[in-house]
């Protein structure tokens, strides 16, 4: 019997697959058929783990329309992402909403440089793939603090004509920053578009490097969000002197017009609360571990 597309909406958001890309970076496949069906590169989703959880935006790496799953990659930084990282295949999430945000502008531009830093490579991958499929020559530059944090290298290689890798400590690829490689390339070659996703400070550096060469540069911004549908304005950002909402007007914006200083300051708004929540969560975990430990001890005794 043909299944109604709509009735899939009330499915449980079950984790079907999990990989640890490194100690703090995890990959999940999650059942969310409607999101899988309508996702376009550049879009994101919002996850809420449980009844007391917060809503956090996460990037979509890939989708499997046949199995109705979406693939996400995230880095454990605060309580919510740490808690998420503890989940296993078979576990379900309370809420997954998406795909949100405007799709990336994918066209045949010519030569496109994709610059990704850290877990920013995750949402960069579907864009790089789409640019390749649209007939562009794709040059990818991936960067991370150290070797283990370079993710999706094989996947990126498959959709790129050339790949450059940098690490801050020189443990893999070239020692230094993605912007160093980009600067050198720009001196030798002409590019039609640069797309950058990663930490705000990196995207700002990329924008500064491309600006004198007048290459259209698109940054995908990672602002703090609540609803993700344009209702709250938590994610507002100044672009070309105008206030925009990252969730509905973006997340992609012209990097030469973005006020990155403001974005970075706004990202720090809840640092003290984040620390408090993470500490409380650690204590919770430790006391849980202790009680398991004492139970085991009792049994042995």
């Amino acid at each position: 019997m043909e299944r109604s597309i709509v009735s899939d909406g009330d499915k449980m958001y079950r984790i079907t697959h999990k990989e640890e890309l490194c100690e703090t970076v995890k990959l999940f496949d999650i059942e969310a058929p409607l999101i899988a069906k309508n996702f376009k590169p550049g879009q994101f989703l919002i996850v809420r783990i449980d009844e007391t959880g917060e809503r956090i935006p996460l990037t979509i790496v890939d989708t499997d329309r046949i199995n109705g799953t979406v693939r996400i990659i995230f880095q454990e930084v605060g309580k919510t992402t740490k808690k998420l990282g503890m989940l296993r295949p078979g576990d379900t999430l309370q809420d997954v909403t998406g795909p949100l945000g405007k799709p990336a502008e994918i066209e045949k531009f010519g030569k496109v440089v994709c610059v990704g830093g850290g877990v920013g490579v995750a949402p960069l991958y579907p864009q790089a793939k789409a640019f390749k499929e649209a007939g562009n020559e794709v040059i990818s530059i991936l960067g991370a603090r150290r070797k283990e944090l370079i993710i999706l290298e094989d996947e990126i290689r498959k959709v790129s004509d050339r790949v450059y890798i940098t690490t801050n400590d020189g443990s893999y690829g070239r020692k230094g920053f993605v912007s160093d490689v980009l600067r050198e390339l720009l001196e030798k070659e002409k590019f039609d578009r640069v797309v950058t996703i990663g930490p705000a400070v990196m995207m700002m550096a990329v924008a500064m490097v491309t600006k004198p060469h007048n290459v259209k540069t698109i940054a995908s911004l990672n602002a703090i969000m609540v609803d993700g549908t344009g209702m709250c304005g938590a994610c507002r950002v100044t672009v070309g002197g105008e206030t925009k909402f990252t969730c509905v007007d973006g997340p992609d914006f012209d990097a030469h017009l973005v006020d990155f200083r403001e974005l970075m300051e706004r990202q720090k708004m809840y640092i003290s609360e984040e620390i408090r929540a993470t500490e409380a969560y650690k204590e919770e975990l430790e006391s849980a571990l202790l009680s398991v430990y004492s139970l085991l001890k009792q049994r042995k005794g």
């Binding site: 009330d10 999101i35 309508n38 809420d95 909403t97 998406g98 949100l100």
Partner: peptide, 18 residues
Amino acid sequence: KTDVVVGKTITLEELLDE
């Protein structure tokens, strides 16, 4: 049905089909 953003998760046209 919660978590469904009409216009994003499904389109109005898709709803009109059903």
